[in-house]
């Protein structure tokens, strides 16, 4: 019945083939998602539900992450800049780091950990309990009902979370820099205004939107093609978080090199 020859599942060739196959499947799912997104009927209520789950429910953790990131950035850069009397640049450093890099990336990673894992677990469970098949049998496209709302919601909510993260991060930097370390408040704020461009913010938000698509798509894919019962769901969840996070960091480099 089964092949007599033992298959080496860890051979690099097989791993690469598998990765490419997976990339292709994710790409196919992305196209299907885009197609289904613009096809009637629009499932707005599903999208809003997912927006609440991905956006509103992640806001607290994103705010906490943002504030403390801004605070530690101010603290670290202060000690560096103090050596050559550039304390005034702490504000600009915090603002630029938050808007261009840390805001989008940390937000995406936090949402991956919180919502991406939940997506994979939810869809994985639906797969193993045949709920996805049930949708198909009802002549309903499961991608439209399950994947599209999540991807669209992540696409819209990641920028919103990111701008909140940027803002509270700068406030965190302000609290540490001006209130605790005693940096001149005027210098702190004017340097931010001088060095921060609107493009920095906008490009950060575009990045965030891309991360939203990536993390939701990867997580949905992993959940959607789960097999092997409860254990398979656990495996999918882990893989979803790992693959999403790595994809975010890789695409971050690519997007940054394209934009700035």
């Amino acid at each position: 019945m089964y092949s007599k020859k033992p298959i080496n599942y860890y051979s690099p060739f097989l791993q690469i083939t598998k990765a490419l196959k997976e990339l292709g499947s994710i790409g196919a799912m992305f196209l299907e998602t885009v197609y289904q997104t613009f096809r009637k009927p629009f499932k707005l209520n599903y999208i809003f539900k997912q927006m609440e789950f991905i956006g509103v429910n992640s806001s607290v953790i994103v705010i906490i992450t943002g504030v403390f990131t801004g605070m530690v950035l101010a603290l670290q850069s202060y000690h560096g800049f103090r050596k050559f009397g550039g304390e005034g640049l702490v504000g600009a450093t915090v603002a630029l780091s938050m808007t261009r890099e840390l805001g989008p990336v940390l937000t995406a990673l936090m949402v991956t950990g919180r919502a991406g894992s939940a997506m994979a677990a939810e869809l994985g469970t639906m797969r193993v309990t045949e709920q996805i098949d049930a949708l198909t049998v009802m002549a309903l496209n499961p991608v439209k009902y399950l994947v599209v709302p999540r991807v669209v919601a992540a696409f819209f909510m990641l920028p919103v979370l990111t701008i909140i993260s940027d803002f509270v991060g700068i406030i965190g930097g302000y609290i540490v820099g001006v209130k605790l370390l005693g940096i001149n408040e005027g210098a702190f704020i004017t340097k931010i205004i001088k060095h921060l461009d609107l493009d920095d913010i906008y490009n950060g938000l575009i990045k965030a939107a891309c991360f939203g698509i990536i993390l939701s798509l990867v997580s949905c894919y992993k959940g959607f093609y789960t097999s092997g019962g409860a254990e398979g769901v656990g495996r999918s969840t882990t893989e979803a978080v790992v693959v999403s996070s790595v994809s975010i960091l890789i695409s971050d480099y690519v997007l940054t090199s394209l934009m700035f």
């Binding site: 639906m126 309990t129 045949e130 098949d133 049930a134 049998v137 002549a139």
Partner: peptide, 16 residues
């Protein structure tokens, strides 16, 4: 074609 069908799954497959 599927619109002609109804199906009861092994574990009911109700939406959680």
């Amino acid at each position: 074609i599927r619109m002609k069908f109804g199906m009861l799954f092994q574990e009911a497959a109700l939406f959680d």
